[in-house]
Each structure stands twice: as C-alpha cells, then as structure tokens.
C-alpha cells in the first residue's frame, strides 16, 4: 500500500458548442449516433439539414462560457459543399474562438461527390473561418475492428494522408481514439503506433457511450480509461490530450484521475445545435 499524489483540481474544462449540420449519413458506423434506428412510417418527418437562419439565431443566444465550436455533419448527397462553407462562415462571424469544422471524412465526401481537389476544399474552409480539422474518421484505425464496426470507411492510410494535408492549408488536423470496451491492450498499442507516425494538433480520447440495441458495444470502465490515457501520454508525449466527455459529463473524481493519468483538458458539450 502506497499513497499516491493527485492534483487537487482537474485540468481545464472547455465548454463546447456542437453544431450538427445534417443527421443523414450513409456510412452506418455501428458506434455512431447517426446510425440509430429510426422506423420509417407513413408520416415520419424526415428533418433536413440545419437552416442557416436557425444556426444564426441559436448562436446569438449562446452562453459566453463556450471556448470551442465543433461543426460536424453526416455524409449526405443532398447538401452541396457551399452550404457547409456558408454555415462555417455564419458561425465564424459571431465567434472569436477556435472553430473545429468537419473532418477528413467529410472533406473526402465533398471531394468525391463534387469532383473538386482536396486542397481547394480545405482552403475554402479556412477562408470561411475554420481554424482546425476535427478528428472524425480516426475513431478506430485497427483494420480488424474497422471491418466489423465501420466497413464503409475509407482506408486508414488514406484518412491519414488527407488529414495531413490540413497542415499545408493552415487547418491543423487532430486525431482520436474511441474508448470502447472492445479494445484490447494490443489494439490500443497498434492504434497509437499508427497515430505516432504523424503529427497532430491534439488527440481526443472520446469516452464511448452505449448505443441502444447493441449490448456488445460497451463503454470503457474509468480505470481502463485512465490506463488508456496514460498509454497515450507515453506514446505521444508532446501532443496535447483532451478527453471528450459523454453527454452526462464525467464526475469530478473521474476528471482528477484522468488528469493524473496525463490528460491536458476536457471537452464538455454545453450547447448542442441540431437540425
């Protein structure tokens, strides 16, 4: 028995406003909340994308404690790239902080659908006011798990190359590890080895939340999460690590344990703007 030292206060907590542009996505990743089952009945209302006017009015009444805006979107064929670009523009007009807009997955979709060069799309996002690229698409980089949980994703290598183009444009890319119970120690090691080959603005550890009707996909226990964070800290020793909290948030104790394990900060969603 040895007593350990803990920080008295956890690492800084950043309030996040999460903007969802559209919930329609064809990719069907099993861990994603865009994949929730919605029965189609004769009067089911299919919500379209988030209108720009709605986004603007919601942003005007946003709490001042927000330190980061994240914009995400499903992969839909209906909205053109110019819609997403205008939305980023509208957000950037009313907010001075960092805006983490979309991820290599969405950029790849626009690239394939609109037949436009990736560098051009990234430059336009940057012009519209985005300051970094999100980590979407790097939830699971281990090929065996990708085959099972997100078989329609682009290859890991393609994702990484696309993300690294962000450094050229001035949109620093970030990466992620999805902390689910299915990951073994070897999986975590190989995921981190893939991440360590490139440089990232920051790494997000996303605390997985259980998905309805899928009992085999379980969230990670807090002690396993601490081990994961400390292993990430050892492997990527000069990249900031942010723990992305699940909707309910983490307890104060959990934040202290994760700070001791090596987390540099926490992202808590304060405001969710949905279509």
């Amino acid at each position: 028995m040895t007593s350990q030292t803990f920080p008295l206060e956890p690492a800084p907590i950043t309030g996040v406003a999460k903007i969802t542009t559209t919930r329609h996505c064809w990719m069907q990743c099993r861990f994603c909340d865009f994949n929730h089952f919605t029965p189609v009945l004769f009067d089911t209302k299919i919500t379209s994308c988030l209108p720009l006017a709605d986004a603007e009015s919601r942003l005007a009444t946003m709490p001042t404690s927000i330190g980061l805006i994240k914009i995400r979107g499903g992969l839909s064929f209906r909205e053109p790239f110019t819609y997403f670009r205008s939305l980023v523009r509208a957000v950037a007009d009313g907010f001075n902080g960092p805006i983490q807009a979309f991820s290599p997955i969405e950029v790849n979709q626009w690239h394939r659908v609109e037949q436009r060069p990736v560098r051009e799309l990234l430059a336009e996002l940057k012009w519209a006011g985005a300051t970094r690229l999100g980590p979407g698409g790097s939830e699971i980089l281990v090929q065996s798990w990708r085959d099972r949980l997100s078989p329609y994703r682009i290859e890991s290598a393609a994702w990484e190359n696309l993300a690294q183009l962000g450094w050229e444009t001035g949109l620093p890319p970030s990466a992620m590890i999805l902390a689910g119970k299915w990951l073994s120690a070897a999986d975590i090691k190989s995921h981190l080895r893939i991440l360590a080959a490139n440089s990232w603005h920051h790494i997000e550890v996303k605390v997985f939340r259980a998905v309805a009707l899928q009992p085999e996909l379980e969230p990670m226990h807090i002690l396993a999460l601490c081990r994961l964070v400390s292993e990430t800290r050892e492997t990527l020793n000069d990249t900031p690590i942010y723990v992305n909290e699940p909707p309910g948030g983490l307890s104060h104790d959990a934040r202290i344990l994760l700070t001791q394990a090596g987390a540099d900060g926490f992202y808590t969603t304060l405001e969710a703007i949905e279509p």
Partner: peptide, 12 residues
C-alpha cells in the same frame, strides 16, 4: 461515488 471507490479499491 463509484469513480473514487473504483480507484481506491484498486489502490487498497
């Protein structure tokens, strides 16, 4: 709380 209890059960 469960988070503190889990850590303390691991430590002691």
């Amino acid at each position: 709380g469960w988070d503190a209890a889990a850590h303390l059960a691991q430590q002691f």
